[in-house]
């Protein structure tokens, strides 16, 4: 575990250096983020005055853990044209989104730093380091990592046999093995039921399957209930309400487990607390 974390660290640092060999010393002054996950790290790490734009999701409290901080920051929808117009000196992006915009920015010689979907907590720490390095706020990055590690270390220890839990998303999607949410569940002292049922990454776990193999705790984001969608209504199905009533249904906001960052520790803390209450 420790060795792999160090390895990822080194690799990430290397990548960051490779993508930014020339201007490592100068602090970028017009930073644009194209993706919710880089938005959040950027808003936490860099000063407001250096942020030219973040994605439109950054200010959405359902998905963003730092929606308050994003208020007033110009929002973008990841379109190449609007990004170029902002004349950024650094663009933070995600490997799986906005590919065309990124390609055009690279052709124009704009410095682009990309992060990947973190699949474990070590990757989260590495990502924080990469972004901190890119925005020249290494000190704040180290402090953030330390705070997260401290908070995770303070969680109540897992009791064997572990309780099972599943994070159940709108339309019946679940986080399985090799996902950040899976890492959070394990850090909080649970067995991830979806991973045990063979769900990999983020995939659908049918309601009947879930009812037939019920976890001890069902984690659901109930905060978005006022924004109607069939997907959200799915989580209100009477069968789920009956099977996972009271303490077996734990509400954790979705924004805490979507991206790597300090919210990860908060999610783990909420989940661990629910576990202790249930015991």
């Amino acid at each position: 575990m420790r060795r792999s974390r160090t390895g990822t660290f080194l690799l990430a640092a290397l990548l960051a250096i490779l993508s930014a060999p020339a201007s490592a010393q100068e602090k970028p002054q017009r930073i644009v983020s194209l993706n919710l996950c880089t938005d959040q790290l950027l808003l936490d790490l860099a000063g407001r005055e250096r942020i030219a734009s973040v994605s439109f999701l950054a200010a959405d409290p359902e998905f963003s853990a730092v929606a308050e901080k994003a208020r007033g920051v110009p929002a973008n929808r990841g379109l190449a044209e609007e990004i170029v117009a902002l004349k950024p000196d650094l663009v933070l992006a995600h490997k799986y989104a906005g590919r065309q915009a990124v390609a055009m920015l690279l052709r124009l010689g704009v410095r682009v730093v990309e992060i990947d979907l973190p699949q474990d907590l070590a990757a989260v720490m590495a990502q924080i380091a990469v972004v901190a390095e890119a925005v020249q706020e290494q000190e704040r990055g180290r402090a953030m990592i330390a705070a997260i590690e401290q908070r995770l270390a303070a969680l109540p220890p897992a009791a064997e046999p572990r309780l099972t839990a599943a994070i159940y998303e709108p339309s019946g999607f679940a986080f399985g093995a090799n996902s950040l949410a899976d890492a959070i569940l394990r850090a909080a002292g649970y067995d991830n039921l979806a991973a045990r049922l063979g769900v990999g990454g983020y995939a659908r776990l049918g309601m009947e399957n879930l009812l037939a193999n019920p976890p001890d705790i069902l984690v659901v984001d109930d905060t978005a209930a006022d924004r109607r969608s069939m997907a959200q209504e799915f989580l209100d199905h009477p069968a789920l309400r009956q099977r996972f009533a009271g303490e077996r249904r734990v509400a954790v906001p979705r924004r805490l487990w979507i991206c790597g960052g300090p919210s990860v520790a908060e999610a783990a803390a909420l989940l661990a607390q629910a576990r202790v209450q249930r015991r």
Binding site: F63, P170, S171, G172, M207, A224, R227, R228, S229, M230, A231, Q232, F234, H237, P238, A239
Partner: peptide, 25 residues
């Protein structure tokens, strides 16, 4: 135009229909 990001993909349900995961309600 719906504020919910899931809504956009739900056009499939409305135009093609489904009986799955419906409730007695």
């Amino acid at each position: 135009l719906s504020p919910n990001p899931y809504a956009t993909v739900e056009v499939v349900f409305w135009l093609l229909g489904s009986l799955s995961d419906r409730s007695l309600e």
